[in-house]
């Protein structure tokens, strides 16, 4: 009872990266709390899936294996998860801030009347003192996220309601196994006991899932563009530089919103978190929502017209100038000097 739960998603039949990242973080939080780490995974034909989760230090894997759960649907998944949580009373429940997690999380939190914080960039354990009632809440989950225009970092807590729920984007937490021989306990969920007939009202007619085309998360060199790149044409220069350097192109949210790049390339709080060897930020001002997703890069080059752009303060090299002028020069001198 009162353990830390991670809702694990499947990605083409395997546990999704974001879920394994959350298990990694969940393990260390559970160690701090002195509680167990439990995983929940739902789907169909999941024989042996628990063995892929145990190495992350998972003490209990709850498996809900039923044809009705083959593809994610809001209502049956919500009924199973809320039913299980009512039974198990987790103190903390984490899920990926994915299409699935962002659909399921709020529905579950509403059903259980518990608070949910979206898109956390950091999760910690700490206490909270309320002066008015002279009460100290021990060992709360600090749900930390940039808020409101990126001017602030907010720490959100849920003192009185359980589970304390949070979603986290892919790539924010590091993924690390504890021990490949770690063995937990398998618990099968009695799916039929939780699902009501009306949960099946929404039917899936068609699904077209695409394999991941762009993987900026594992790129060693990233050439990233912001709104300051100015046009889709100028963005083509970034692709050229990335291809010459053997890297990938990424973008800030403003550039994605402006249609310069697809969402799958977005770096930042509401995109992907990356840790490349080299991050070249072109025409990116550097709001916290963006820097939260790239400030752990090995080296950062900022190319910006504005000598006062916030990105400059975290950059190793600041080039004050036009993206359209600087990027072709980088290409030219790389070609001239590289062996």
């Amino acid at each position: 009872m009162n353990n830390l739960f991670v809702f694990c998603e499947l990605d083409e039949g395997r546990p999704a990266d974001v879920s394994l990242e959350l298990l990694t973080r969940g393990r260390s939080l559970a160690n701090t709390l002195g509680c167990r780490l439990e995983a929940v995974i739902l789907g169909s034909g999941l024989d042996g899936i628990e063995n892929e989760l145990y190495p992350y230090g998972v003490d209990v894997v709850h498996v809900g294996d039923d044809p009705v759960l083959e593809h994610y649907r809001t209502m049956p998944y919500t009924s199973v998860i809320t039913g299980l949580f009512r039974q198990e009373q987790p103190q903390i429940a984490l899920m990926g801030a994915t299409s699935t997690g962002r659909d399921l999380g709020p529905r579950v939190s509403s059903a259980l009347h518990s608070g949910l914080t979206a898109d956390c960039t950091s999760l910690e354990i700490g206490d909270h003192y309320v002066k008015k009632t002279d009460t100290t809440y021990k060992n709360l989950l600090y749900q930390i996220r940039p808020a409101f225009g990126g001017n602030i970092i907010a720490t959100i807590i849920n003192p009185d309601h359980r589970p304390q729920m949070a979603t986290v984007r892919e790539g924010v937490m590091k993924r690390e196994t504890v021990n490949k021989n770690y063995r937990g306990e398998l618990k099968k969920i009695d799916v039929a006991a939780f699902i009501r007939p009306e949960d099946l009202a929404v039917e899936i007619i068609e699904r077209h899932m695409e394999a991941r085309k762009v993987d900026i998360k594992s790129a060693q060199i990233i050439v990233s563009g912001g709104y300051g790149v100015g046009s889709k044409e100028n963005f083509a220069l970034l692709y050229e530089l990335a291809s010459v350097l053997g890297g990938e192109v990424a973008a800030s949210r403003a550039a994605v919103d402006a249609g310069y790049a697809g969402h799958e390339r977005q770096v930042g709080q509401t995109g992907v978190t990356v840790r490349p060897k080299l991050y070249i930020a072109c025409g990116i001002s550097g709001q916290i929502q963006h820097t939260a997703g790239m400030n752990q890069s090995g080296k950062i080059i900022a190319i910006n017209n504005d000598p006062m752009a916030p990105i400059n303060s975290i950059a190793d090299y600041v080039i004050t100038g036009d993206v359209a002028e600087v990027v072709p020069k980088l290409i030219k001198y790389y070609k001239a000097n590289a062996r």
């Binding site: 914080t117 990126g150 602030i152 907010a154 303060s313």
Partner: peptide
Amino acid sequence: PTKVKEIENVILQSKESRRLT
């Protein structure tokens, strides 16, 4: 259920950056 415990103004830790033209 959710409460704001703390708000921190963002202060970016300045690295020693090299300035180029």
